[in-house]
Design a protein around this nucleic acid. Structure first.
Lengths: 199, 199
DNA sequence: TTGGTTTGATTGACTCGTCAATCAAAAAAG
DNA sequence: CTTTTTTGATTGACGAGTCAATCAAACCAA
């Protein structure tokens, strides 16, 4: 039953299906047949819309990055103080839309894919630089020029680590625990910078 | 030119080749042909020694875990104070044998594989529990019973995050920076526990 | 009709795993 | 010491199966 003007919905279905399939398999070794089947269409239609499998992968990756980016931007807009800006980034990282096992597994898969694929690496580079600079800007008023880079990189790495552990380790942290760990780490940073000024 | 008694060396070659191949590809989607070729033999010989591809994968994974475990155990034996024991675990994580890009990529691949493979998950579970309990034991005298679990999980996650970033991000931390970040994090923990007692 | 949509069938390439055959060294027999 | 046998090492070729990608044809709305 071909419907006209179905392209955008079809493409979206395929991207969602690709994300779910990749997340479940924990690998890019998924067939177009499985992705298309999950999206309710034949493999040939997937090729019709995307050209080849790599394009499906890249578009899925871009979708994931955009979704996180939107989550972060949205929360940053609502933040007024520096501390709220840092919390916004932390919270975006562990927001429900980003912090379920399949999504994290897919994230990791793309992370790995970026090791051996130039386009994937470029895509990642852009987004991760933007995130880092957001974190640096938010932290600078809190910890000062001298320590801001180290603080941002430590907090960033901690977020990544908690993120990975949630998806891949049984008994890993849930979102609330992860947020708490980040905030505790941040507060130790703050009281090291200006002791006695906590709370 | 078949040499008798070549089995152990052949198996070792195959495992090394598998590790390198998986690390380069950033994926388990590697052919036995490529692994065997890199190890200087025909694919059929790889099947002769290991039975099937899964066995090659599992043995490679076990090899990686064992290597890290040995590195950590070795350093722990040389440590006498609690602080030295924590440093031993940090240093083992960023030791040269564990901290090159290919090895970390392979580690990540196995991490992901454990999501969908029971035997791989079991293997991981054993090792990661042992590592965690080592970290908890070493930290307890330093940060006290109440905070020891949180401290261990935070430090563990930070190690994981730095680890991942080194391999997967351009401009990620090198081993020295990673160690420094962990020790700084630890020291902030310590001075929060007993302020004024640092150095 | 025209043009976007959809699929079944097909192709060529590649992979896992098997098997029979080959080869060299060690062990046993003469 | 020589010859034969056994054993493990090694491979090329093969079969079954899967996958990415293509194509022609069918389908439907405007």
């Amino acid at each position: 039953m071909p419907r006209i003007g179905a392209e955008p919905a079809r493409r979206r279905s395929l991207i969602d299906a690709a994300l779910a399939t990749i997340g479940e398999h924990g690998s890019l070794d998924v067939s177009v047949k499985e992705i298309a089947g999950r999206a309710g269409m034949s493999p040939a239609l997937a090729f019709h819309y995307f050209g080849d499998k790599d394009a499906i992968i890249i578009h899925t990756m871009r979708h994931l990055l955009r979704e996180f980016s939107a989550e972060a931007t949205d929360r940053l807009k609502r933040a007024s103080t520096p501390r709220e800006r840092v919390d916004a980034i932390i919270d975006a990282s562990f927001a429900a839309s980003q912090f379920d096992r399949k999504t994290i597994a897919a994230w990791l898969v793309f992370y790995l894919h970026a090791c051996s694929s130039r386009p994937a690496a470029r895509l990642f580079h852009v987004y991760s630089r933007r995130l880092r600079s957001n974190l640096v800007d938010a932290l600078r008023p809190l910890v000062g020029d001298r320590e801001v880079v180290a603080a941002a990189d430590t907090l960033g790495a901690l977020i990544d680590g908690l993120y990975v552990r949630h998806a891949l380790r049984s008994g890993g942290p849930d979102a609330a625990e992860a947020r708490r760990a980040c905030q505790a780490c941040l507060e130790r940073h703050l009281s090291a910078y200006s002791p006695g000024a906590s709370q």
